[in-house]
Design a binder for these strands. Sequence first.
DNA 1: AGTATCCTGGAA
DNA 2: TTCCAGGATACT
Length: 293
Amino acid sequence: MPELPEVETVRRDLEKYLIGASFQSIKIINFKNVAPRATFLAKFLKGKKIVALGRRGKLLIVDLSAPDKHLLFHLKMTGQLIYEQSNKTLAGGHSLSDDSLTKAVGGKLPNKYTRAIFDLDKNRHLYFNDIRKFGYIKLVSNDELRDILKNNYGPEPMDKEFSFDYLKELCQKRSAPIKAVILNQKLIAGLGNIYADEALFAAKIRPDRPAKSLKRSELLDLHNLIIIIIKQAIKARGTTFRNYVDARGKKGNFVNYLQVYQRQGQTCLVCGGIISKIKVAGRGTHYCPHCQK
DNA sequence: AGTATCCTGGAA
DNA sequence: TTCCAGGATACT
């Protein structure tokens, strides 16, 4: 599931290929989570350029050459944003092929899960794929974007504002499970189910502990490890457990470093005990009963 | 604070 | 055939 490290990987990839690209035409296919409606969006985007790619939590923000307009992408559970340049015969007769790069997504694009196609200049194409159609595409003004960010996104792990004191204050008065607290995007932006479980394992804290029950030393560890794990995951280009791929259709490598996520029934890599799976905050939750107290 | 909802595919 | 995956929101 695309969380902060996955969206950041896509953002960095797209930044390499799409800065300065201008929209030619767009197609929306059997997909409702688009605002404004597809025909208006297509007309608006035509000729506009991509000037910057930003991110807040799991939200990808495309700044456009139109003043006061941003195109937002949220991948939710199964969204993918894949860049491709069409095969093109060069002056010398050589053929430019992207086949090796499209193989990771299982063949040619668009595919049956392609919900939007953005055709850009220089034979560049951006495909928005989403099996479950939970993701969304939204064109917003400066004011709308400011409100969205202000109302829904707390500081993210690498921000200065995500200090130890901030985390301590969040937890002090909450009886909700610590996992629910660190998953709440309004409190900390960017963690999802994978990195929440991994951070709590690394900090040796049971996910169902009431947040207010955490000791200072545990909060210190959790604060440090959230930051460290998110950084490591970005370095590894994210985690591909099911559907996530980067902007070139390739898988993330952090799956090789997972300690507990989806490892229920397997042996703990630290103590050799058996990893458990329970439900916390409505999510499948993986932890080691021996290591995590 | 917990639960239903949006969807679909894959596993049990 | 039913359950599960879990991001975010709308409910209760």
